[in-house]
């Protein structure tokens, strides 16, 4: 390896280590029963970061209770959101990036402006609308608001804009048509952006807290962040279990990202054909 590569690996590992350190602390603390992790906290001891003498008891309790079912619900809701949300966003982004139609600029500005609306400021009136639309306490009610994700459209449009015009023209000459061009040319070139937009949609549901509570989900449809919040009783809070639950909630997207890394590398090899 060249010196610069060794330096790069070192820098990457250092950055990753520093940024991940707090999560490591969460993991180490989640192995301690109850609130006993505070014992190593003040004054801070190196033991706080060492999971020795711990156990997975918190995880066992957690996965035995409502949390496991809520985790499945979260997977379901987030998964459906990613699939439908990507479909909606890809179509819209393709229209905004490739098609030449009057008012295109205005539609784009509309998408950006709508993305700026703070959800917390409109969640309560929206939940009123959902109850008139009879969508309270339903999976549809959980999923629909997340589909209107302007940033997913935005990020895909930015990447679709990067597809060289000559490639699009060539596809037209080959008689692929607009849909054929999208499926055969544009999407395969945009895997990293699709992963990015997909993660964005996934996380928006994976972390959903306010909305599912506002539309009143019954216990069977509870999502993981709410099950996590329910771990603290009125007067007692078992931080060990909460930390364990948080680590699970944080680790799932990380594992998904690890899994999709191959797609990143693949797109590197296909990018040879751009140019």
């Amino acid at each position: 390896m060249k010196v610069s590569r060794v330096a790069s690996v070192f820098a990457a590992a250092l950055a990753a280590g520093l940024i991940f350190l707090p999560l490591w602390w969460v993991f180490a603390s989640s192995l301690r029963p109850g609130n006993s992790f505070v014992e190593n906290l003040t004054p801070l001891s190196w033991r706080a970061f060492l999971p020795v003498g711990g156990s997975f008891a918190n995880y066992e309790v957690l996965l035995d209770g409502d949390f496991a079912r809520a985790l499945l619900n979260s997977f379901l809701v987030a998964g459906v959101t990613v699939v439908l949300g990507l479909a909606v966003a890809v179509l819209a982004a393709y229209a905004l990036a490739v098609l030449n139609f009057p008012g295109r600029g205005y539609v784009f500005v509309f998408v950006i402006l709508v993305s700026m609306v703070p959800f917390d400021a409109i969640a309560i009136p929206l939940s009123g609308l959902f109850s008139t639309w009879r969508l309270s306490d339903s999976y549809a009610g959980l999923i629909l608001p997340a589909l209107a994700n302007g940033f997913a459209i935005f990020v895909l449009r930015q990447f679709f804009l990067g597809v060289p015009q000559e490639l699009l023209d060539a596809a037209e000459v080959d008689g692929l048509g607009r849909f054929g061009t999208l499926l055969r040319i544009v999407l395969p070139l945009s895997k990293p952006a699709l992963i990015g937009a997909g993660l964005m949609l996934f996380l928006s549901q994976w972390q959903a807290y306010l909305w599912p509570l506002l539309i009143g989900t019954s216990p069977g449809k509870q999502l993981a962040p709410i099950a996590l919040a329910n771990l603290s009783n009125l007067y007692s809070v078992d931080l060990g279990q909460i930390l364990a639950g948080s680590f699970v909630l944080s680790a799932v997207p990380m594992v998904l990202l690890l899994f999709f890394q191959r797609q990143y590398t693949e797109s590197l090899s296909t990018s040879g054909m751009r140019g």
């Binding site: 609130n35 505070v38 014992e39 003040t42």
Partner: peptide, 10 residues
């Protein structure tokens, strides 16, 4: 953390 700290002897 206050209650955990007291219960933990801190």
């Amino acid at each position: 953390k206050t209650n955990a700290l007291f219960a933990g002897g801190k």
